Simulated scan of single mutants.
Amino acid sequence: MTYSIRSGMGSCHAWRIIAAFVCTALVARAVMVQAADPDPLQDFCVADLSPSAPRVNGFPCKDRANVTSKDFLFTGFRTPGNVSVTGTNAYPTFGAVLEYPALNTLGISHVRLDFGIGGVVPPHTHPFASETLFVVQGSIYTGFISFDGVLYAETLQKGDIYIFPKGTLHFQINVGTGPAISFNSLNSQSPGFLVAANQLLLSNIPAAVLESSLGIFNATDLNLLEASVPPFWG
């Protein structure tokens, strides 16, 4: 009888371990799934961007009776961006949900990048999306820094594609002899856009923190550095 009871207790303990493991796995999977845009529950949900529309995780749907084929057309990439206004001779034209409401709930967005000669898209991150870059014209040097501090970078030519994993710091520079264009896709309708220099130098972090972190111990030098950041990219 004693052996039987112990066996039963051991079996019960084993099942508790198994149940705890399964529960942990399910929670981990749920967290992993939540790390990306959720799958839609309908074929489309053109965003209602009106100020009176209720806000949820994304945007509410436009009345389906008012949706037309024009809602699914985006013409914002027809015109080149004005690279002269950014301070880095490059310009991003965004095609995310705010510009292209048909993307709502579909987990994708786009960007057109125009580069003058030597044009730069500063180091930045997209906290909610991975990104691919497709070179349409010119020659672009681009890369990202992995979470262990390694730079992965290549010089791309027309027709080449490069990928930036979610949340990694990445950049682009036109290294050709003429203008360059890329077409980028991201796997979120609202990927986020955080420029490293702006986040660090234009976000009211105390001067003492920046001076120690950057090895600058002269307030004048820090002020000059802050003043040199192109505000467009903020």
Results as ranks from 00 to 15, higher is better:
78 R>H: 05
134 F>W: 11
125 T>P: 06
143 G>Y: 11
75 T>E: 12
148 D>P: 00
80 P>G: 02
163 I>Q: 13
85 V>Y: 03
109 S>R: 10
108 I>C: 11
95 G>K: 02
144 F>T: 00
160 D>Q: 09
73 L>I: 15
94 F>T: 07
142 T>Y: 03
77 F>H: 01
75 T>K: 07
96 A>K: 10
159 G>D: 03
110 H>T: 14
112 R>A: 12
112 R>I: 11
124 H>C: 06
97 V>E: 00
155 T>N: 10
97 V>L: 03
112 R>E: 10
163 I>H: 13
113 L>T: 09
146 S>K: 04
114 D>R: 02
136 V>D: 11
97 V>P: 00
119 G>Q: 08
133 L>A: 13
86 T>F: 04
107 G>I: 05
101 P>L: 09
96 A>G: 12
95 G>L: 01
156 L>K: 06
168 T>H: 13
89 N>P: 02
144 F>H: 13
135 V>K: 01
180 A>Y: 00
114 D>H: 04
92 P>T: 00
100 Y>P: 00
116 G>Q: 09
142 T>I: 04
109 S>V: 09
148 D>C: 04
72 F>M: 01
122 P>N: 08
146 S>E: 04
93 T>W: 02
150 V>P: 01
118 G>Q: 06
103 L>C: 07
101 P>E: 10
117 I>P: 02
162 Y>H: 12
108 I>W: 12
119 G>C: 10
157 Q>V: 07
122 P>V: 06
176 G>I: 00
100 Y>E: 04
90 A>N: 02
82 N>P: 08
122 P>C: 06
102 A>P: 01
156 L>S: 03
153 A>R: 10
175 V>M: 03
79 T>Y: 07
162 Y>T: 12
82 N>M: 07
148 D>K: 11
106 L>N: 05
147 F>R: 14
141 Y>T: 08
163 I>C: 13
81 G>S: 05
136 V>F: 09
175 V>G: 01
95 G>A: 09
117 I>D: 02
174 N>M: 00
151 L>P: 05
159 G>H: 05
81 G>K: 01
102 A>Q: 07
171 F>K: 02
131 E>V: 04
125 T>V: 15
96 A>M: 13
87 G>A: 04
157 Q>C: 06
176 G>V: 00
171 F>H: 03
152 Y>S: 12
176 G>L: 01
111 V>I: 15
99 E>M: 14
153 A>K: 11
142 T>E: 08
76 G>M: 03
91 Y>F: 15
145 I>W: 12
110 H>C: 13
158 K>I: 06
123 P>N: 11
120 V>A: 06
139 S>N: 12
123 P>E: 11
91 Y>S: 07
167 G>L: 11
134 F>Y: 15
143 G>D: 09
167 G>R: 08
170 H>K: 04
166 K>E: 10
86 T>L: 03
174 N>E: 00
130 S>I: 03
154 E>R: 15
108 I>L: 15
158 K>D: 05
78 R>K: 15
76 G>H: 00
147 F>N: 14
104 N>R: 08
179 P>T: 05
110 H>Y: 15
111 V>H: 08
157 Q>H: 14
111 V>A: 10
87 G>L: 07
73 L>K: 12
125 T>H: 08
132 T>Y: 13
91 Y>L: 02
98 L>H: 10
93 T>M: 07
127 P>E: 08
162 Y>P: 04
150 V>D: 08
97 V>K: 01
